[in-house]
Design a protein around this nucleic acid. Structure first.
Lengths: 215, 215
DNA sequence: TTCTAATTGTGAAAAAGGTTACAAACAAGA
DNA sequence: TCTTGTTTGTAACCTTTTTCACAATTAGAA
């Protein structure tokens, strides 16, 4: 087992493995080999084994992995054994769509508050979630124990929102504003830039030759 | 200039460069060197030059790049000189949020139709866009010249939606369902999996030590 | 107990991606 | 025209990521 720095590519795959294991578990499978996993979900078996090896020896040679056992380990490794409390900044279409995104409600992420500057939105209730004034972020975040912030505001406000959020002690931020942001050390930022994805897709559309399938 | 296969990492960066150039253009800058570009937008100058070199020689030694000229080239390379017509499948919260996503309206992507199976939604108008029955996708896609499909349906339906969409001749698909999909050759699929991003974020939250800032 | 078949964990090779460093090219001033 | 200073385009190098290949380990059958 290596204690080195784990790359984001690896953690992304861990999430995929977890999903696969849950599926197998739902089918009542008790054990699975890295080969079977790889074949069924179109992954690479050596990579699965290597990724897992970063965190310990979970398999049994000659047998494979115990599905439930490995699932539990992965959940723990990914920090999904604890609940996370999410605050979304920006109560526009995207923000409110995210507020009841299946993935949030599905896993251990509870959206507990929306924030906005628009007086018309503050005080409203969207789904199960109240909209607060963003200027009260720190206060609400503390009271509601928010540990993940989602930025869903226009690009020009994103950096200052991030600063504010960071100041209040949040360590994990997901950014949907199509702009790169600077973060302080110790804060993890993940940006999902739809503009980049779209434009990149457009590239492949006008170069249909060089396409190699997936992703 | 190399005609090799261009990686997605490169096309993603091209989109970033384009954004930077537009910003410089708005400020009235006529030329820019790769060094200045890199410094200002926190990129790497050699990488910029290398990425551009895949498509031609756009710079002038001793001078740099002509901002407007390079912008136009990048737009062309990314296929953003033509308009794209987007159909979104799934008129739920996410689908409708995407329908008036700024990035779509902003760039050359027009959302021209939403599709759903829900009788209550079919025939409605959301923003500027009509909701059609998904079973009529091929027909509407042809009539409205849709060339990009966005999948915003629950994971269990995503694969069959993709098949249907592919059958109607669409070559570029963006998938928001948190599940990997299989595509036929010649179709470009880009999946944005929020569950993976969230769970990966969760990992870094419970391992706050190993954090190295950005992305 | 010994043998066989399966499967892990991992070092070594290969591929992909990113950075450094510099010759070649050009602009502008002497 | 020649010289100086700048900046590109790219070859060489380095790093990271992925894949290959196999010794080590285990379960179960003989």
């Amino acid at each position: 087992m290596k204690v080195e720095k784990i790359s984001e590519l690896t953690t992304n795959r861990l999430s995929v493995y977890l999903r696969c294991l849950n599926e197998l578990l739902a089918e009542g499978k008790r054990t699975v080999s890295s080969d079977k996993l790889a074949e069924r979900f179109h992954l690479n078996s050596a990579q699965i084994r290597k990724d897992l090896a970063c965190f310990g020896e979970f398999g049994v040679r000659g047998v494979g992995y115990y599905v439930e056992d490995l699932r539990d380990h992965l959940q723990k490794i990914l920090g999904l054994d604890k609940n996370h409390r999410v605050g979304i900044i920006g109560a526009g279409r995207l923000g409110t769509a995210l507020a009841d995104y299946y993935g949030f409600t599905q896993t251990n992420f509870d959206v507990v508050a929306l924030f906005d500057n628009d007086k018309g939105k503050i005080g409203q209730r969207i789904g199960d979630v109240d909209v607060f004034a963003f200027k009260n972020f720190a206060k609400v975040a503390k009271k509601d124990k928010i540990d993940v912030a989602v930025i869903a505001v226009p690009a020009q406000f994103a950096q200052s929102v991030l600063e504010e959020v960071t100041k209040s002690g949040i360590k994990a931020v997901m950014n949907f504003a199509p702009t790169p942001l600077r973060v302080h050390d110790g804060v993890k930022l993940k940006t999902i830039d739809l503009t980049i994805s779209l434009e990149s897709l457009s590239y492949f559309l006008s170069h249909v030759n060089n396409i190699n399938g997936n992703n």
